[in-house]
Amino acid sequence: MVAALAAFWPDRPETDWAYTGGFAIACGALALALALAAFAGVRFVAFQRLHRLSPWLFALALFLASWEAVTAKLGLLPLPFFPPPQAIVEVAIDDWRRLAEGIFASARLLATGYFLGAAAGFVTGVAIGWSRRAGYWIHPVLRFIGPLPATAWLPLAFFIFPSSFSASIFLIALATGFPVTVLTWSGVASVKSAYYDIARTLGATQRFLVLKVAIPAAMPHVFVGLFMGLGNSFAVLVVAEMLGVKAGLGWYLQWAQGWAAYANMYAALLLMAFLCSGLITLLFRLRDRLLSWQKGLVRW
């Protein structure tokens, strides 16, 4: 099965694209490595994990092959909107410095905004869920402003904040904070009253009830909020970078489109997909660790 890939990949027609040779060789080498691994799997358990992946690897090879076929080989799709795969390899090799800078800028912005937003949302959510007075004052504000998409604040934020960087942080924090607040709140509010009764009869203080009963019991909800907030923050990040901050992957996308450098755009998109998916995976790993006491967790 995996060996069949080897037959597919090296079979490339030469075109005028740079790196075609390199791409073909890389694919061939990968195919060979996979084929070897497939044979090794017969002997060594370590390689047998690949067996599970092989249908996917095959589909991926098919996809790459047809992509190559309709672009570089047959020219069915119009250029420059649909470059062949080797053009993206070309971008990755020639423009890696700018891409790396973009990743770094995006990551810095996202991390700062997300952590500030998540922390603020968590504290606000616990406050509303726990204290009637906090609920009285914060709830109406939350109801009124929360559903407003964070991007609607964009013109105002770039006007109020001293730099586009701090404005973007505010927007990302806002986008993250709303779902985290609401879900933390609902988590704290839905804690069984019996949990509090137990702790109270055992001599717990208010502080203990909040920190050791309400918050741990609300954690499954909090993680749903963190997950939704992360999704929101990606959207705001890209918009903020496109419209305000002159750095990051979102800006790179915009910039590449301006130069009609579609291969660069695909490269940035691909990178963003990896990063976003990676961050969500990271969040789920964290949840699996912290909430290992739960039954029947959804696997990401």
């Binding site: 069984k192 019996a194 949990y195 009869t201 001599g203 909430l291 006491w293």
Partner: peptide, 15 residues
Amino acid sequence: PSRVVVFQDPTLYPW
């Protein structure tokens, strides 16, 4: 804490 209740439902903290 000198008067402790054992409820019908054990209500252990699942976490």
